[in-house]
Amino acid sequence: MFDAFFRALGRSRETRETESHSDDVRTDGGVADPAMAGEAEASSSSVLDSEFVQSLPFWGPPALLVGLFVYGAVAWNVLISLTDWSGLGQPEYENFDLSVYSQMLNDLLDPTSNFFVATRNTVALLVAFTVITLLLGLLLAILVDQGVRFENTFRTIYLLPMSLSFVVTAIFWSWMYNPSIGLINETLRTVGLGAFTQAWLSNPQFKLGAVIFALMWQFSGYAMIVYLAGLQAIPNEQYEAARTDGASTFRMYRRVVVPQLRSSTTSAAVVLMVFALKAFDFLFVMFGPNPGPSTDILSVMMFREAFMSTNWAYGSGIATVLFLMALGVIAPYLYRQYQRGEL
């Protein structure tokens, strides 16, 4: 990959000059480009090179920015995690070791350590949030797809929370969950379920569940949109065929429709799982940098370790773990997309 890149870079100066020159000519009178005419006769590899060079001004600058800010920063983060940088000084890139990671491995064996607790909560959030959001999204999509009136209005309302900042929704839900006068407990009392009222955000048993419920509220509209696209791609004849076979609605969805939504499920699940890994804003606004053992997750712990306790190397280590978890989710997905030629 790289030698082709450099070969092309070596040629780029000359070709770019003729390119810009011939561009001028054509703007004036549409004179055929000699370089282009020659290109047709040239061997296929130089055609590839030339198209590569001509495409470079378009994707080059964005790729440079992404390379620097995204991948460069990820690599730098791994490097920092190998130092022992902490406190207010500068990192010293001299003695690299894996002490941060061996500490994490040790912590994983200790169920009372912060890292163990945060990892457990992250996985619980990831699984529970993804599953219930997908289920609610599927239900909404099926309902909206029944050819109902005001379909667009329903869709717009269900997707609306996605347009709000987590800072905003965390404030709304702190109010909803208020133990004495919040809407959740008020509603429970009104319908005679007063026994089920809770201090949702301070009782360790319900804290994480309350967060997951609120996040489900915010994201199920997204899952609905993805499933709707999947549903609309299923040919109408299949519904009719199932109907004439006398299948009940439930059976039809279970046997005919849901299996065909597999790719919608996969892609929505990838997005939701990756979101769960980086969920930060919502928890931070609701609980601050220290949500306590029942709700602490890796992304909040990373921020706390690095930016509050100035344990930079350790914070970077947690960040690397989060990156690897995200990679574990997206790499198989991207590979499959690539295999099916959908990339």
């Binding site: 198209e51 590569f52 890994l277 990339l343």
Partner: peptide
């Protein structure tokens, strides 16, 4: 709309970039 060798590789890096957690770049940033 322009085709060149290895563009799938570069493209995958762009697509994967959508999913990278902000946390993994915060300290270097």
């Amino acid at each position: 709309n322009l085709n060149w060798k290895y563009q799938v590789g570069v493209l995958s890096l762009f697509v994967a970039g959508v999913f990278i957690p902000y946390q993994s770049v915060l300290v270097p940033l």
